[in-house]
Write a protein that binds this DNA or RNA. Sequence first.
DNA 1: TACGATTTGGTCCTTTCGGGTGATGGAAAA
DNA 2: TTTTCCATCACCCGAAAGGACCAAATCGTA
Lengths: 172, 172
Amino acid sequence: MRNLCDHIARLQAGGNRSFGRSPLAAWARFVTLGDMIRTVVLYALALAAGAFALQWLQYNYLVRTFPVEIYIALIAVAFAGLGVWAGLRLARRPAPETFERNTAAIASLGITQREQQVLELLASGKSNKEIAHKLGVSPNTVKTQVASLYQKLEVQRRTQAVQKARELALIP
Amino acid sequence: MRNLCDHIARLQAGGNRSFGRSPLAAWARFVTLGDMIRTVVLYALALAAGAFALQWLQYNYLVRTFPVEIYIALIAVAFAGLGVWAGLRLARRPAPETFERNTAAIASLGITQREQQVLELLASGKSNKEIAHKLGVSPNTVKTQVASLYQKLEVQRRTQAVQKARELALIP
DNA sequence: TACGATTTGGTCCTTTCGGGTGATGGAAAA
DNA sequence: TTTTCCATCACCCGAAAGGACCAAATCGTA
């Protein structure tokens, strides 16, 4: 149940420390549904407005004055610009600095809440004694919990534990 | 000379661990000039090809068969699609996983090359003995260098050293 | 050449860490 | 109700790490 090798492949897919290779993949993973819908609606509205304006211009002024090529060029430029804007907006990552804890990994490794707290303090460079003081428990307890963490993470030293926890997105 | 507090403000600006807020800023910082030129040229070629195709269609078939509104819609859709593609391409970050060592911080803290090597191995979870074996020196030497690192980083434990080095972008 | 920085190595001592074992009380599940 | 899991604490022992010294060899530069 606690075999790391069996889990890593699945778990790492859950972490968000690895960014997608294509912008579309990145967008699909990070943009919320509401954000997507808003963007699409905005783009549709802009298209409609543009089309309306073009219709109006067509029947009232432009076609009687300029050759059709200029008309075509204007449409092309306008919609290309709209497309670029929409593309940039779609590709924008909403919150680059957020960190989502890989709860799937935590659950799968059987790491308890208390052990999570200990892990965070451990990763921030605290000693067992400091962690014990901060959590209001005995240093011996912290030792036990740290040892349990080592077992579950399959490491021998605290620097290795920090390294592995960061890889698995257990801590920021 | 080794006062951390005096340096952190300046040094942290040199690290690249903070990503730009707007996609354009991110693009400007990460996309190379060559990449930009290639994208622009590709887009221009696509525009030219589209315009040529439209001209051909206009004088040979479409305008004699369909009303002008359909023609306009086709142009709009085509160029909007082109724009979206170009926008996505422009917004794509070329190498999301790159890490630039904060050499300014390293120099300012007076961290030597050998100490950098030791720091990386230390951060990867190795013990002093393992580091000594990997570098082909005595464990005592590694102890001295690690102690020197602690002084320069103003920390007491190796987990703190890892933490601080990561903050200052001294290591990935 | 002399000086300073770097790299290397050492000793002695204390503290911290890591592994192992065992035990207790409470809460949740079987 | 019994069992299991979690959190807590204790003890021992050895290994690792850390502090405080010292001191060579090397190398670039003033």
